[in-house]
Write a protein that binds this DNA or RNA. Sequence first.
DNA 1: CTGTATCCACATTGATACTG
DNA 2: CAGTATCAATGTGGATACAG
Lengths: 121, 121
Amino acid sequence: MTPEAYLTAVGACPGHRVLDRLGDKWVSLVLKELGEGPCRSGELSRTLAGVSRKMLTQTLRGLERDGLVARTTTGGAPSQVEYRLTPLGRGLREAMLVVVGWAEAHIGEVDAARAAYDGNC
Amino acid sequence: MTPEAYLTAVGACPGHRVLDRLGDKWVSLVLKELGEGPCRSGELSRTLAGVSRKMLTQTLRGLERDGLVARTTTGGAPSQVEYRLTPLGRGLREAMLVVVGWAEAHIGEVDAARAAYDGNC
DNA sequence: CTGTATCCACATTGATACTG
DNA sequence: CAGTATCAATGTGGATACAG
């Protein structure tokens, strides 16, 4: 298929676009953290153990661009920046929590199925 | 961070694991298609315009392994294979539809925010 | 403290050709 | 028809060093 056709078929579907973003490595974790209250950049770095500064900034920029997260800088040196969810972001978080809830309730069945599948090799 | 620490913090979280899978390029589309009824492999190829045979098989294998999709072969030549959602898969599909619903309702706001952000460059 | 730029290793994906 | 194997291109994420 041509790249254009692919973009039309998949890239334009709202559901797919949003699921794709939620699947990004750090998006769900940022949403979870910010859901519990505004947070400074440094705090996020520490809480989301393992995220590099680059990816954290990149993730936050993407969410900010999509209107899901708001950024407030308390100018000065050393600079201070705070992130928090917008109403839109809180809405996405709620939807995400439905999936997370399903996951926590059924991950055992998934793992069992996986073990069974791998066993009957 | 060490790879192990990363795996512990992120890879083990049920919510993250499931969101990660839903973010896979073709998973959501397969779930959507199979949600409307069992389907042959060839039908899926045609409906999910743009998927390569390799990725389709790979996606279906993954879902099958997780107990979300069941595979039935009506042996013979030419061989026939049918895929359908398991009860577990239907449950995940329901959870996914919540996110998809949010996406369809709010994608306009996201696009507006994005346009505004890009405008104020 | 926060954010950016560069480089690099790795995973993901798709084209192609081939086997039951 | 269904699935597999291989190779090449691309994208993604992270380490590091640097700038405001």
